[in-house]
Design a protein around this nucleic acid. Structure first.
Lengths: 114, 114
DNA sequence: TAGCTATTTGGCTCATATGCTAAACATGCT
DNA sequence: AGCATGTTTAGCATATGAGCCAAATAGCTA
């Protein structure tokens, strides 16, 4: 089942995940299809454990999903979630500039934490 | 003239600016038009100096512009830049999900920093 | 100039984030 | 079982970030 938390501090975890350039690059790399953790790590000059941590952050923000394939763990991109979370914010701030293809999210609630 | 640095570490400054919920809220607040620093600060429960720092970060990412009006400094939203920077990334990662209204940016170069 | 308001800057504390290496865990193979 | 491979977890060092208060700067008005 889908996790219920989808509008509130969700945005926070997504934008924090996107704050790091390595993580953004991982997402771009996953655009081509699922990749094993090691394959991802080999594209960067930082250690595998560090990449593993980045993948953990992305997974925590639910921007990627993982599945086990024998020895390896394959990661894939949660495109729609990324587009929804970021798109929701973008259309709250500059709705004139952007248009979402799938507009099936709920409008962002007015109550903001401050 | 547009500032020349517009594709490279620009994205980094924008996404780092967006990582903080207070800063995202400031951007949303500026959606209604320009606001003085003090007006912005009064909407939050944190100190004016802290808000000033947040505004500095947003200004550094060129997501807001400032203009002086006598005593006060009025900030306004750089909507298009926000849409462009975030939209460029979004369409690099999940181009199927989103569509930009003004598509007048250059395509992101292949050479990535890593 | 003095005094007032608005805003930023300096200097500090505390928490979080990122990187590393070494060690643990998981899976498959012989 | 024992070993090789792939990945994560533990533990640590250092850097960055966000908050505060006090003090400095900028502009206005008397």
């Amino acid at each position: 089942m889908e996790s219920p938390a989808d509008t509130a501090d969700d945005e926070a975890s997504v934008f924090r995940a996107l704050a790091d350039p390595t993580r953004r690059q991982i997402l771009e790399d996953l655009r081509g299809g699922e990749l094993a953790a090691g394959e991802i790590a080999s594209r960067f000059s930082i250690s595998a454990p560090s990449i593993s941590r980045h993948l953990g952050v992305l997974k925590g923000a639910r921007l990627v999903t993982e599945r086990r394939d024998a020895n390896r763990i394959l990661y894939s991109l949660a495109e729609e979630r990324l587009a929804m979370c970021v798109g929701r914010f973008l259309s709250a701030v500059c709705p004139e500039q952007i248009v979402l293809r799938h507009s099936k999210w709920r409008a962002a609630p007015e109550g903001n934490a401050r």
